[in-house]
Simulated scan of single mutants.
Amino acid sequence: MSRVVSCLCLLWCGSLLLPIAGCGPGSSSERSTTVVILGAASTKDALQEMAEAAQQELGEDTQIEISTGPSHALAQQILSGAPADIYISANQKWADELVAAGLTENSTAWLANALVLIVPEGSSQKVTTLEDLTNDSVQRVAIAGENVPAGIYAQQALSYHKLWEPLVAAGKIVRGHDVRSTLAYAQRGEVDAAVVYSTDARLTDQVQVVAHFDPASHDQIVYPLVRIHTPEPTEAADRVYTFLQSDQAQAIARKYGFVPLTSDRKGE
């Protein structure tokens, strides 16, 4: 959180919360900047480690705050005026919504991911292929919400394999709030199978990957990194945006199973 200095007044400038010293000799140098990142739920762990690394470079006068959740919900928050400096979506659609609204400075195709089918570790269900999802013994298959990128990709992939309609007709589909809650259903054994990103499945030993979806079965899973427009130039946010594209950040992304991308594009 921003440091509190004596006699400060708060200036709220969109996504920048900047304590300003309002009195006392030499107090003008006492400043602390907060950079706010809103990121897709699936980036939570990697993003936290990246932020910690960026924090070391920026120093204590700049704090990085991260909030993760469904990409569409975060985008809607920004569209409604919520403060943010950087936005990370799990698909291009929601980044494009912000671009169309004139709320961005720049964006880049940042990371890529893959889709997998998981089952709870030690499950008694004999689910080893996608087709096994239609077995009568399989009662609940979890995917993320219909507006969540992971849920959109999952529905596309299941439709590609002609499994979506049979699963819906049998009442087997269970929707998670986001991909992490979908993963949690499988971790707790509350569903027989779930469709999540491969990066999510790597985070726990409580699930087992039983199938990998062909990338051709769904839209390419791309995470745009978006620099949100702020009323005043924000050097700290620019530095964080640049750091997230650095070799150090890409190494962290690879550790969590993401594939770094390098295609830059303007978001104006």
Rank of each mutant, 00 (worst) to 15 (best):
V116G: 11
Q63N: 11
S107K: 12
Y160T: 07
A46D: 00
D85I: 02
T62V: 15
V127Q: 08
A114D: 13
E65H: 10
G39A: 15
Q56L: 13
L130G: 04
W164G: 04
L38G: 02
E121D: 13
T104R: 03
I88N: 00
E146V: 14
A75H: 02
E146Q: 14
I143G: 03
L117C: 06
V116N: 10
A142S: 12
Y160I: 05
W164S: 07
A90V: 09
G39R: 03
S159A: 15
G151D: 13
P83F: 05
V119W: 02
P70N: 10
G59M: 10
Y87P: 02
A40P: 05
A144R: 05
V119M: 04
D96M: 15
N106L: 11
S107T: 11
P120Y: 07
S123K: 10
I88E: 00
G122A: 07
I118P: 06
A144Y: 08
L47Q: 02
P120G: 07
A75I: 02
P166H: 08
A169M: 05
D132P: 14
Q48M: 12
L79M: 07
W110H: 13
Q125Y: 06
A112E: 15
E52W: 06
Q92F: 05
G102R: 11
Q76R: 09
E65G: 09
L115C: 13
K162P: 08
Y160F: 15
A112M: 09
E57S: 14
Q77G: 04
V141D: 04
W94D: 15
Q156I: 07
V168C: 04
G102T: 12
V127I: 15
A170K: 14
V138H: 06
H72S: 02
A53G: 08
A142C: 10
D45L: 12
G81M: 00
A157P: 09
S71C: 00
E131L: 13
A73K: 01
L130A: 07
L79D: 02
Q56P: 03
G151S: 11
S123E: 09
Q125T: 09
P70A: 15
T134V: 15
E165G: 04
S71Y: 00
A170H: 08
D136A: 15
L130S: 06
P83W: 04
K93M: 08
E165T: 14
E60Y: 05
E97I: 03
A154W: 01
A142G: 10
Q76C: 01
L158K: 01
D136E: 15
A90H: 12
A170T: 09
I64K: 00
S89V: 01
A41E: 09
A82M: 03
A95C: 12
W110K: 03
E105N: 12
L58G: 07
A82R: 07
V141K: 02
S67P: 01
V168N: 10
A100W: 03
L117N: 05
A53C: 10
